[in-house]
């Protein structure tokens, strides 16, 4: 199967689970921002979870299939058409050679995903197919997609199937979204009052948020008691507090090391919710302990593995309802 891009959208890149083996040499991890949505997209078309997908920000691409095969679109909500006929997200479809898929502006959520059976075939660079925009490496020629680009995938040999819609839009469209956090490595360096201030107010998602980090705006947190740090390794979802007191949640394209204190880390299961928020929406942090957070995570991880195991489907059209229901359990956190 192959794809020809007609219009690249605003920021469409090839991403997978990220480039984790070279972060100890200073190379950013990258990878999909919303791994729940990307996982579901891959599961729907029968892929391994590490298969590369297309990620778009704010607006999806328009493209033509140059071979037959299955695809699924997940993540942010948009008007989507296959040859001008409306289609749903979170559902597998079979495209014929010459079919045109068009994904419009996102009306809810920020990052959308397109998975194709077999995954997007770009060269593996340092263990990953993810695009590093900063270093112009990996993905498709190290850059975002544009009209005329042709992406290859593997030949789709699965019989045609159409999964039930797995879930309806799972992300918050509310003005305020609760995001759970666990204490970060510098938690003890902040005063009890500052630790309270983090959860006793809402923070707005700033316009400056990007794949590197979600920049938040609120009543400034007091960092005056925090001693100067030596740089240390960063983690996904780390809530660092620079001198101006406005927190930044570190995301996929974060630098590998940082010198700002990390007061908290976003619970894994809440990261997809967070990255899908758009500027102006508010975050309300809530402290939970690590054991609680890891229990939530293990449940999510277990469900994903179970779906995967139950999902060695090729032709079982009769059982399509079941995986759809199982995928829905991913979001019951």
């Amino acid at each position: 199967m192959a794809l020809k891009i007609q219009a690249g959208g605003l920021l469409t890149t090839v991403q997978d689970q990220g480039r984790t083996t070279t972060q100890d040499s200073g190379f950013s991890v990258s990878g999909v921002m919303d791994f729940d949505a990307a996982n579901v997209a891959n599961l729907l078309v029968g892929n391994e979870l590490d298969a590369a997908v297309l990620e778009s920000s704010l607006q999806g691409p328009t493209l033509t299939f140059t071979q037959d095969g299955h695809f699924a679109v997940t993540g942010a909500t948009a008007q989507m058409t296959l040859n001008d006929r409306p289609i749903d997200g979170y559902r597998a479809y079979f495209a014929h050679r010459g079919d045109q898929l068009s994904i419009g502006h996102y009306t809810a959520g920020r990052f959308g995903y397109l998975a194709i059976t077999g995954g997007i075939q770009v060269p593996v660079v340092m263990g990953s197919r993810s695009t590093s925009l900063k270093y112009q490496l990996g993905g498709y020629r190290g850059r975002q997609l544009q009209a005329g680009d042709v992406l290859t995938t593997v030949r789709d040999t699965a019989a045609q199937h159409q999964f039930q819609q797995a879930v309806t839009y799972p992300y918050s469209q509310q003005a305020v979204t609760t995001i759970r956090v666990t204490p970060g490595p510098q938690y003890q360096d902040f005063t009890a009052q500052t630790r309270q201030e983090l959860t006793h107010q809402g923070f707005a998602i700033s316009q400056q948020s990007d794949r590197m980090g979600a920049r938040l705006q609120g009543h400034a947190l007091d960092t005056s008691k925090v001693t100067e740090m030596l740089s240390e390794g960063t983690v996904l979802g780390g809530v660092q507090v620079p001198r101006d007191g406005q927190p930044i949640v570190l995301l996929a394209d974060r630098q590998t090391t940082g010198g700002y204190p990390v007061i908290a880390v976003v619970a894994r299961v809440d990261l997809p919710k967070l990255v899908q928020l758009t500027p102006g929406q508010q975050v309300q942090f809530q402290w939970i302990d690590l054991a609680q957070s890891q229990t939530l995570y293990s449940k999510n991880y277990g469900s994903t593995a179970a779906i995967k195991a139950a999902h060695q489907f090729q032709t079982q059209i009769s059982s399509i309802r079941e995986p759809a229901q199982r995928i829905a359990t991913l979001f019951n956190n």
Binding site: D24, E232, G233, V235, T256, Q294, G302
Partner: peptide, 20 residues
């Protein structure tokens, strides 16, 4: 995975496979 720095070694792990 690992991420060494001046005075820290960040050790990455999969909690589904090894407990804290």
């Amino acid at each position: 995975g690992f991420l060494p720095a001046f005075r820290t070694l960040t050790v990455f792990y999969e909690p589904a496979q090894i407990s804290l």
